[in-house]
Design a protein around this nucleic acid. Structure first.
Lengths: 128, 128, 128, 128
DNA sequence: GTGGTCTAGACCACG
DNA sequence: GTGGTCTAGACCACT
């Protein structure tokens, strides 16, 4: 599982990290029960502060993706547990302005569906 | 066209405003060539800072939604001009982490398409 | 609303702060919509670091007690919103070992009810 | 008496162990004078560190639940001795913030009494 | 050695 | 001036 930070990017580091870890879980590169690197280790590898990694881990814990294991430090939660959380509200809130913008830019409902499908396939096809 | 700010929302005011104006254009409530309220007036109406409205207008100008009319008022750009801008890159960047999260939460490609279609219809059906 | 930190206490500062703010809301000293002091202000008043206050505020936001208001900084959430969150699970988890210990120490179910009632009254009677 | 550790739980292992042993005494599964498994054995059974079991035993000795028997094995103290210790202060300190939170969440004094009674019954009814 | 907590100082986005 | 983010260094509880 390769993680990479774009320091010149406007999205906060802790959020880039969060997104990439979620991507890893979605792709199946990070399996349930698998140990995450320690905050210090990951911080050193990425050249960032351990508190930033810590913030990411805490965020992912709150979102149900990770859990602290008292022997194996931080691990990926069971897929079942991750699955139980409903994000339809979040999807609506984020997608609404995006779809509105897409409409203004001349995209139709089929264009959007196709884009979503392509992104979906790109993520799932690479399952290892 | 009714604009409403949620002060307790995590998204910045200037961005809420931007999203709502884009939504207005998508719905057809704001037609091309229509003039926007003055910065001063809109700020007063919404109870927000002049700078905030200004920031929104500037952002929308940069994105091609608004244009300055005779160096005075601000008007909605022609739909054709708005249409010419390509947002596929932006869509990819924003949708990728979202789709990844949706996959983790157990949503399939059809679920997502359906959600997008529903949001799409909700916006376009209310065209006035 | 008077807040006080016991530095010699084993419970973390951010948690002491959290408990006292919740107590304030329960007593009605902190009303819904009321502004909390800024993190810098409160940190200075209590002689602690602003990040510690920040952590408390974030915790209380996640628990639904506080919300950020883009003009009034951080405010107390509506009582209705606070009310909607179910803590029965948490109560069970925290109370079970406590009740078990109480049983070992010879307390009956009535003793416990009475203690709870007394604490309850002490909090609510001082409503202002 | 079955002991089980949840490694993914936020409460420290030594505390989980302590709570379960107290629960055992409260239920009557652990009778006075009964000898506890050796530190080494219990650690092996649960797959945890020796130090952790040791810490739990020491804690329980300090709290009066366990005593050393003939400088070898550790046994459950007499119920009378356990009974003599007053925990009203501790109860107040732990219950106060909890009751305050419950009030905020809309629970009344009767709701709380009922919850406590239910937990109480669940523990005592299973006496063996 | 792990994560959790606290302090400290700095910069930035927002309003 | 507000909260949000990031860095840095320190101590502690837990295992």
């Amino acid at each position: 599982m390769l993680l990479k930070i774009q320091f010149e990017n406007e999205t906060p580091i802790y959020e880039q990290l969060r997104n990439q870890i979620i991507m890893g879980i979605a792709k199946g590169e990070l399996k349930e029960g698998e140990s995450m690197p320690s905050v210090r280790q990951l911080a050193a590898d990425l050249g960032i502060n351990l508190h930033t990694v810590n913030k990411t881990y805490n965020l992912l814990k709150n979102e149900g993706f990770l859990v602290v294991h008292r022997r194996k430090s931080v691990i990926v939660n069971t897929l079942e547990a991750i699955n139980q959380i409903d994000i339809s509200e979040k999807l609506d809130q984020v997608l609404s302005p995006l779809v509105a913008e897409a409409i203004c830019r001349g995209l139709g409902t089929d264009d959007l569906s196709q884009i979503v499908k392509r992104i979906y396939s790109n993520i799932t096809k690479e399952t290892k």
